[in-house]
Design a protein around this nucleic acid. Structure first.
Length: 413
RNA sequence: GGAGGGGUUCCCGAGUGGCUAAAGGGGGCAGACUGUAAAUCUGUUGGCGACGCCUUCGGAGGUUCGAAUCCUCCCCCCUCCA
């Protein structure tokens, strides 16, 4: 096996990395692997706690891909066992335990989504149940001996919760040890994670030393802000772009990010050449110099380029084009989208609120509210009052609910 | 084991017998505005056969004309002492 030269590798691998412990160790490992022809084993662990993954997860997954690009072994570790405990980092309270079935269900979805980025054939997919399921209680104690409560309380979310009087379960204390043990079991050279993972990642180094292995290099990528522009992208905040979102949604959601996140998104979520990204960054600092509508460095144009690149990552370039068309049409020109779901109803006459409730799948009270707030249009004309009677026919009519929901309606033939 | 504090609507959190579908904030949704699905401002935010009715304040009973608010039992969480 031969690899690109060290500098090329480093440039690719270090893109967007916030912290690395330690860079010299990584260089040493790369040099050694070039000499021996043996690729590095790079691990990314994910707990399948939710049904689908979003771009926040993709930051580290793309980092794993960067190693894969350079010829190293990408290990995608599914924390089927640890997911049942819950990593404490995600939120500052104990997490609800998942059943084995839920975990497996999620894990399957994760794989499908992750392989939109990673090369499936070159990825080593593992589950940590492989080594944790067969462990006895004595084995577990042996692991527990290797750390102390004081050590665990160094981690600031534990410390915070402890001081606040929020619950911390014993299993949560075990969590970093388990994640660390994953690295021992897999003999990892490198482990990836977000900056919030630092404690757990370092636990891997400690344990590897205790088990007589060379400690892994840990690489941390920044956490990415979600659509609200301030909070970390996460499922609970509902400020995320999902990998499985439609091209239209990915495009639109990307367009809704704050301008000052554009460079960060480019760096962490696309492989657009870094010099190009910097050029965009410079232009965004001088917005008034790029006000001509057709200027490719107009903030709008830059953001569209970003949105296209991101859509293309998970779909393809023609989908990116579709997403852009949709955005220009629906959001910018306020026209109807080219595709709208068709709803067929049995009766011909409905009070407006019932029609809206039926089509939009909302309660009738909600439908009344939408109409009185002027949020519903029938064939482009605002419906004035909730109780107005609407007559349908076999001819399609369009109904717009809010800015984003469009439907074609007609009676059943 | 002992003593004390607490579980409220999507979330945080006020409310300690009727004026409470329940303050306030966050989030969501809608409208205006905009290069934008951003920011900002405004409105709205349980349901229904809608000037009334039904469901909701950890669970189950009870007191009362009337309970999120009082009583009993149970479940869960936290703190301190041991």
């Amino acid at each position: 096996m031969s690899f690109p030269d060290i500098e090329t590798q480093m440039r690719h691998i270090m893109r967007g990395v916030e912290e690395i412990i330690h860079e010299e160790e990584l260089r040493r490992m790369l040099t050694k692997s070039a000499q021996t022809g043996l690729p590095l084993r790079v691990k990314l662990g994910v707990d399948p706690t939710a049904a689908d993954i979003h771009l926040g997860h993709m930051v580290t997954i793309r980092k794993l891909k960067h190693f894969q690009d350079m010829g190293h072994i990408a290990i995608f570790l599914i924390g089927d066992f640890t997911a049942r405990i819950g990593d404490p980092t995600e939120r500052s309270e104990a997490r609800i335990r998942l059943t084995k079935e839920q975990v497996w269900e999620h894990a399957k979805n994760y794989e499908n989504q992750v392989f939109k980025i990673l090369d499936e054939k070159k990825t080593e997919v593992r589950n940590n149940g492989e080594w944790f399921d067969p462990m006895s209680f004595a084995d577990c104690l042996d692991l527990a001996y290797r750390s102390t409560v004081a050590r665990m309380l160094e981690r600031n979310d534990f410390e915070k919760r402890f001081k606040e009087g929020s619950p911390i379960s014993i299993t949560e204390f075990l969590y970093p040890l388990m994640q660390g043990y994953d690295s021992v079991a897999l003999k990892c050279h490198v482990e990836l994670g977000g900056t919030d993972q630092k404690f757990n990642l370092l636990a891997g180094r400690d344990l590897q030393i205790q088990f007589g292995q060379e400690p892994q290099v840990v690489m941390m990528t920044p956490l990415i802000e979600g659509l609200d522009g301030s909070k970390k992208m996460s499922k609970t905040e509902r400020n995320y772009i999902a990998v499985d979102d439609t091209p239209e949604d990915i495009f639109g959601k990307t367009m809704s990010i704050q301008d000052d996140l554009i460079v960060k998104y480019f760096t962490l979520l696309t492989d657009v050449d870094i010099d190009e990204v910097n050029r965009f960054g410079a232009a965004l600092k001088e917005v008034d110099k790029h006000q001509e509508a057709g200027d490719p460095l107009h903030p709008m144009q830059i953001k569209k380029a970003l949105a296209r690149s991101i859509v293309a990552e998970y779909h393809d370039w023609s989908a990116a084009r579709r997403g852009e068309d949709h955005f220009e049409k629906v959001v910018q020109r306020r026209e109807l989208p080219s595709e709208m779901p068709l709803v067929q109803l049995a009766a011909m006459k409905y009070p407006a609120y019932e029609l809206v409730a039926e089509i939009g799948q909302v309660s009738k009270a909600e439908a009344r509210r939408l109409i009185s707030q002027g949020g519903v249009k029938l064939d482009g004309i605002k419906i004035e009052a909730p109780s107005i009677e609407i007559t349908l026919s076999v001819k399609e009519a369009t109904v717009q609910i809010g800015k984003r929901k469009f439907y074609r309606v007609k009676t059943k033939d």
